[in-house]
């Protein structure tokens, strides 16, 4: 085998490593994480190249600006940790911090276009899209219009993985 062929094999292995890395990173919270439930509502089914999905909005997607200190100094995409408390079926907002908490239940998100003049700030968690076949996505949107619960698994560092969407009890 020539040197060129060997280098090409390494390049292909690198591509496979990227895929395996993405797969493991995506699945790890589902294998090892702690289960929480978040109140959600499917907003709008979309059809993009990636397929059909229901766009999810959570109660913790819009957070009151008073939870943030020095909002003007925060950048778009800033990592924030949302502290959660379990008072009933679903987990609810208990506070916001920029430092990773050492204990308790928390979820990691990214601040979107912070603006101190607004009453609330938007956070994205990476679990806003629930992919499903077209008919199922449309049905989901219709069935869960009055409110739903997202079953989410949290890894040690707060990274969430979306597992399922269920009707609210």
């Amino acid at each position: 085998m020539t040197k060129g062929s060997r280098l090409l094999i390494i390049a292909v292995i690198a591509q496979m490593a990227v895929l395996v890395g993405m797969y493991v990173t995506a699945a790890l919270p589902l294998w090892t994480g702690a289960e929480i439930r978040l109140a959600t509502a499917p907003v709008d089914p979309r059809s993009l190249f990636r397929g059909n999905y229901a766009l999810l909005s959570y109660d913790i997607s819009e957070i009151d600006s008073t939870y943030f200190k020095n909002l003007d100094e925060l950048r778009h995409g800033e990592i924030v940790f949302i502290l959660l408390s379990n008072t009933d079926e679903v987990s609810r907002l208990d506070g916001v911090t920029l430092m990773k908490p050492s204990e308790g239940r928390f979820v990691r998100g990214r601040l979107q276009n912070p603006n101190s003049s607004l009453a609330t700030q938007r956070i994205r968690y990476g679990i806003e899209a629930f992919f499903a076949p077209k008919e199922e996505a449309l049905l989901l949107e219709k069935k869960l219009r009055t409110g739903a619960v997202a079953v989410v698994f949290l890894s040690q560092n707060g990274k969430p993985a979306l597992h399922a969407i269920e009707p609210r009890r």
Partner: peptide, 12 residues
């Protein structure tokens, strides 16, 4: 990559 994003609902 698209399939992994779809299966695990990745949208971060």
């Amino acid at each position: 990559i698209i399939l992994i994003a779809q299966i695990y609902h990745l949208g971060e």
